[in-house]
Design a protein around this nucleic acid. Structure first.
Length: 565
DNA sequence: GCCGTTTTCGGCCCGACTGTTTTCAGTCG
């Protein structure tokens, strides 16, 4: 998305400015970084006509005239002149060097001036030649830390999926339980906010013996390297290349610390300002009355929210997307939970590319407490997915009907995932499709169309009365490929008119629609349906990741698809 | 560069940790 690109440019501009030694450069840089944060969590497409406007953008908190002009310039020309100038004036490849942990703009400047370091390659060379440790302010430890960070950066792609992060944290928590000094332990940060990808994992611990608990943490067997080991804060790299930061806090501050370290940064800034306006000071140590600095509340996160904004705000909402205002007006959404999910309407069996039988999927559905499942094997020309042909149709639908009849305790719907062809038609005999309980339509091929053509293609499929669900609407794969381009607003509008539910695909690689688009869709009145798109019984457990997306998108029960087929 | 019950100038969050120092700068979150 273009928002991310612009946010990245602003961040990079800030880093170049930070390298300058001008009087105000520190604050100019911070302002740009702040603007970058605002844009990276901004839910609307900045390139849309309503937002690509300097005067409109300037009204956003943290965006001033100059940043607004950069944004519009980038959308119109694909470049920001000031950024190009900064880059061309600078002798170093700053963006590349800053990916090395522990290396910041000041170090880059010094290493360039003293050693002529301009990129990661020359940085590595200087370290191997033992030159970095000779520079003022650097030493042996710093030099070897830089070398290790370079190695790490090569093998570490950046963010990991929420499912990988969750797997790691479960293992680590099992280990931490062996330390009997621990009174309380919680995950914080973006994992607690249930973001789709996680940069690093933050955990918070209260212990009767802080020193011992910290030692226990840094002795974990899956550690690749201990980055920091202090009294109240330590950081490690796991062998799986995920960074974990731990904080030790007093039980009396636990709620405040949990609030603080859960973030997001933007949410916290706003909450702290509310605290100030109400005569308090909020920090990770507690909520204090401003004059005498008396502790008002620290232990209980819920109470802090209640004092400041009348209502507890769920972690998934803490992105400064209006949740603080909504809380103050007692207008927060009543978020769905996993127990609101009554079934799963997209899954594949051995009839196409799945691993398990219809019966096995149904049994697992029963175990999960579902009222229904929908079998949606691939149909038509998708050879790669072993799709069901028109001549196989009879066998397939009979097998589902048989399972539905013979397995008590769950309704098994007969359905299929049908490809939307380039023209927007369903790639299968529609008279056969009519015999299914519902049709789930999706795009897998010919995705490199113009935005206009793709919009027309999807809209035409939505107008087909057989189609009840649009599966993984954007086709994105997290960290692998961006979604295909189409006019989201137009598609959502038609989905609402035609009563087609938009899928939140719960597979951790997809999570499509994402939180931002889902939020826009439900505001426009669309229904959403969370499906796992499972290809095995194991994957049916992924439902929770879809629920995370829905919660982050403010989805309440009345926005979920109600079965009427 | 951004912002404003301190509103067009003057201030901007801050604490922990590390490494290199002997009181502090840089980085990170």
């Amino acid at each position: 998305m273009i928002n991310t690109q612009i946010a990245e440019i602003l961040f990079n501009m800030a880093s170049y400015i930070e390298m300058e030694s001008g009087k105000n450069s520190f604050f100019r840089a911070r302002a740009l970084k702040n603007a970058s944060d605002v844009l990276s969590s901004f839910p609307y497409d900045l390139s849309s006509p309503e937002w690509c406007d300097v005067q409109r953008l300037e009204k956003l908190q943290g965006i001033g005239k100059s940043t607004a002009e950069h944004i519009v310039e980038f959308i119109k020309t694909g470049k920001v002149k000031d950024y190009e100038t900064l880059k061309s004036k600078s002798p170093v490849k700053l963006e590349e060097l800053l990916r090395i942990q522990g290396v910041g703009p000041k170090s880059v400047l010094k290493l360039y001036e003293k050693l002529g370091v301009t990129d990661v390659e020359s940085l590595k060379k200087a370290a191997l030649e033992n030159k970095i440790s000779q520079v003022d302010g650097f030493g042996d430890k710093k030099q070897s830390a830089i070398l290790e960070s370079i190695e790490f950066a090569i093998t570490h792609s950046g963010r990991v999926s929420i499912s990988d992060a969750e797997y790691e944290i479960n293992q680590l928590f099992d280990y931490m339980k062996d330390d009997k000094n621990i009174i309380q332990i919680n995950v914080a940060g973006s994992l607690r906010r249930r973001k789709e990808t996680i940069g690093d994992i933050d955990i918070l611990v209260s212990s009767s013996d802080a020193k011992a608990s910290m030692l226990h943490f840094v002795s974990y067997k899956n550690i690749e390297k201990v980055l920091a080991h202090g009294e109240t804060k330590s950081s490690i790299w796991l062998k799986s290349k995920i960074q974990v930061d731990i904080r030790l806090v007093d039980l009396d501050s636990f709620g405040a610390a949990l609030q603080y370290f859960t973030g997001s940064k933007e949410h916290n800034v706003k909450l702290r300002n509310i605290a100030i306006s109400k005569g308090y000071k909020l920090s990770e140590y507690g909520l204090f009355t401003r004059g005498d600095l008396k502790l008002k509340e620290g232990k209980d996160e819920k109470k802090i929210y209640e004092i400041l904004v009348n209502n507890y705000i769920e972690p998934e909402l803490r992105e400064d997307q209006g949740e603080i205002e909504a809380a103050s007006k007692k207008n927060l959404p009543n978020l769905i939970t996993l127990s609101d999910i009554e079934g799963d309407l997209q899954m594949h069996t051995t009839f196409s590319d799945g691993e398990n039988s219809i019966e096995a999927m149904a049994q697992k559905g029963i175990d999960l407490g579902y009222k229904y499942i929908g079998i949606t094997d691939h149909f038509g020309k998708l050879k790669i997915a072993n799709a069901i042909s028109e001549s196989d149709f009879e066998t397939y639908i009979n097998a589902i009907h048989k399972a539905d009849k013979e397995i008590p305790g769950i309704k098994v719907f007969a359905s299929g995932e049908i490809e939307i062809d380039k023209n927007g038609d369903l790639e299968f005999d529609n008279s056969l499709l009519e015999r299914l309980d519902y049709v789930i339509a999706s795009v897998h091929f010919a995705t490199k169309m113009s935005k206009e053509d793709m919009t027309k293609r999807i809209v035409k499929a939505l107008r087909n009365p057989l189609v009840k669900i649009l599966a993984h609407p954007t086709g994105r794969l997290i960290d692998q490929r961006p979604g295909f381009e189409f006019d989201h607003q137009e598609v959502f509008k038609v989905a609402k008119e035609e009563n087609v539910a938009l899928e939140i695909n719960a597979h951790p690689k997809r999570l499509d629609l994402n939180d931002k688009l889902t939020h826009i869709a439900i505001i426009m009145g669309c229904k959403v349906v969370i499906n796992t798109d499972s290809h095995s019984i194991r994957e049916l457990d992924n439902m929770r990741f879809g629920v995370d997306v829905a919660r982050r998108a403010w989805v309440q029960k009345d926005s979920l698809l109600k079965i009427d087929f």
